[in-house]
Amino acid sequence: MKMIIAIGGWINGHVAYFLDLLGLFILTLRETRHLFNRSRRRIFMVLFKRQLYNTGIKAIYINSLIAFFLGMIVAARVLVYIPQAANYANIYVIVVVRELGPLISGLILISRSATAITAEIGHLKLYDQFDVLHSQRVSAAFIFLLPVFYSFPISLLFMFIYFNFVTMISSWFFLSTFGDSSISMASFMEAILSQITMLEIMITSLKAIIGGSLIGIICIYFGSSVGERFTDISRAISKSTTSLLLMFFVINIGLSILAY
């Protein structure tokens, strides 16, 4: 009997969680109507650009470092089995463009930006600052949710592209230094780019749009669930990160299985 109650409670909790996320998604769409108002659109653009900068531009260095080392490692491993650099392209697209690039970029977004947003929203909730906006009849969802919802997918897409580009450069560098030195960077990149089909572009874009939007909604959901205790913030960050990692892996692997 206790097990049935526990299972029921678990299911109930998860159903409520998904319904809450759906509600937040609908709220986001509803708040989008404010963008038709010129003065509100101005506020949105300031916050949106700030978010893009924090999420995308400021992540360039960590993105570059990880992409650089990943390119080296993949090239090093592949070189053992495929000495000819020109044959490397297919492996590169399958491993990096389809899977590792999106996954690692998503992990960077989650660990850097989503956790920061959860902490920020949690702090605002803890100190009743949403009440302050409510007292001025300013929509908190418009100020905090909308910029994140729209900037995260765009940032993620650009991170994918940038990550793949840096990995390509570092792989070519490794292969031309330790393997086949006859291949130029231009022909190496052309070999890889010619392997990228419309399907890869579509699936990568979907991973960015769906993954990025959900990362934005989920991190804000957990931030706004903070109660009256300071420790609620760290708890929210922990739960948020766990949910985000699970969600992002499921989406990436799910889309890859469906498409490829």
Partner: peptide, 24 residues
């Protein structure tokens, strides 16, 4: 407000101006 009443991520100026810009 007696205490608080400002959103901590905005400057004092933006806290004052934001509602006015928002409501046009």
């Amino acid at each position: 407000y007696e205490s608080g009443g400002l959103v901590s991520i905005f400057t004092v100026y933006n806290n004052i101006a934001l509602p006015m810009v928002y409501h046009g």
